[in-house]
Design a protein around this nucleic acid. Structure first.
Lengths: 214, 214
DNA sequence: CTAAAATATGAGTAATCCTCATGTTTGCAA
DNA sequence: TTGCAAACATGAGGATTACTCATATTTTAG
């Protein structure tokens, strides 16, 4: 029983596919499974995706699903890998030939627009790529919390830069705060030395932004 | 059946507590439940937390758990609210009396250290506050993906600033990239207008950092 | 044509969230 | 003190769902 529990909650390991589709027929079926999963994730998020629904939507049996995907996460994983590969190609292409400041400005700006547009248009990517199946209510709490915290920063900024556009100050504060949370999350997921460097680098960046004169 | 499913996957709503503990005894028991949940989340993450384990560890029955928490998420939620309130008080206190640039520098730096330290020391907060129950493997993929993408930026930076410290460039690139993802995630969770503003603000910030001379 | 490999199936198993009927304790008015 | 209503406690069992496996079918290779 202990081993079963261990295996069940062993989230740190990637289960390898039970079998790779080698025939034409099975390749097509696997594609249908992925498409079905993608659609369901888009509708309700990967957490609410049910294996039975995926099978039904793909027109295959439950068993066939498990023929090629060892478990539910493997399907999400496969989609994630697909999008990852696509995005890397895109990023690499955009930045490959940049060789001066002006080029970087342009390429970076375009890249962000593409990335942003992708997230806006594709809920699957939002779920898979943003990597959080956290439920909406919790996300809402986080956003509210971020806003509340950013307000403290806004108050400070208004004192320091009374003539600045309030809307811009709000935007700056919220962004700086959110990026800080991202920096800390990143920092705790790498080794301590790199984490410390990242936090220090973030501090410098954030302060430059916060103290920047109009 | 349809209604049941709807209720089950209705992640956007916060279920209100079935009952508030009004007697001394039940208040203590609820505390024990929260403590047990907190410990289990620290061990394995909230996703792997089992209601039966929480009850056992708290020394109460399953039924008592559901007397005060409508569902599993409500426990996580309760912990999150607790930490949120604590952190807001901390942030507010740190920033309240800041009135000049030097003060902001100090306060902000200290705040970040506290925040970072909290995440390092308290795995519960990591799970609850960082708001992602996404499994470790997926998180690992994301980090690897971020690193890979940041490498493209590093290549550009090395061309633009050949004399800069490579380690610093790596740090800058990874941070800028990660913050970009955070900015986009934030942008898609607010209305379109504010989202656009946030992305544009991020672009400006990021480019200032990337193009900054040593 | 035939045997082996690949693929397909879906009823069944096990894990887990949550309910509910029933029993126990507490607060309080008479 | 006593009696009673409200609050609290319990855990077996219902319901859902990820996943298995014995069995059947299709494809491929020799």
């Amino acid at each position: 029983m202990d081993e079963k529990v261990a295996a069940k909650s062993d989230q740190g390991t990637i289960a390898s596919p039970r079998r790779s589709p080698s025939q034409q027929r099975s390749r097509e079926r696997v594609e249908r499974m992925l498409a079905a999963a993608s659609a369901l994730i888009a509708e309700q998020g990967s957490d609410a995706m049910r294996m039975g629904e995926v099978a039904e939507k793909a027109g295959v049996s439950i068993g066939s699903l498990y023929q090629f995907f060892p478990d539910k996460r493997a399907i999400v994983w496969a989609l994630a890998e697909r999008y990852t590969a696509e995005s890397q190609a895109c990023i690499s292409a955009a930045l490959k030939d940049v060789s001066d400041a002006e080029g970087l400005k342009q390429a970076f700006s375009e890249l962000l627009d593409i990335y942003y547009g992708l997230f806006l248009a594709e809920p699957v990517i939002r779920d898979v790529w943003s990597g959080t199946q956290a439920d909406k209510a919790l996300r809402g709490l986080e956003l509210a919390d971020s806003r509340a915290n950013a307000e403290f920063l806004v108050a400070v900024l208004k004192r320091l830069r009374p003539d600045a556009d309030p809307v811009e100050l709000e935007t700056t504060a919220l962004l700086v705060w959110q990026m800080g949370e991202a920096a800390v999350r990143l920092a705790i997921s790498v080794d301590r030395e790199e984490g410390d460097r990242l936090v220090e680098a973030y501090k410098r960046m954030a302060l430059r932004e916060l103290l920047r004169a109009e």
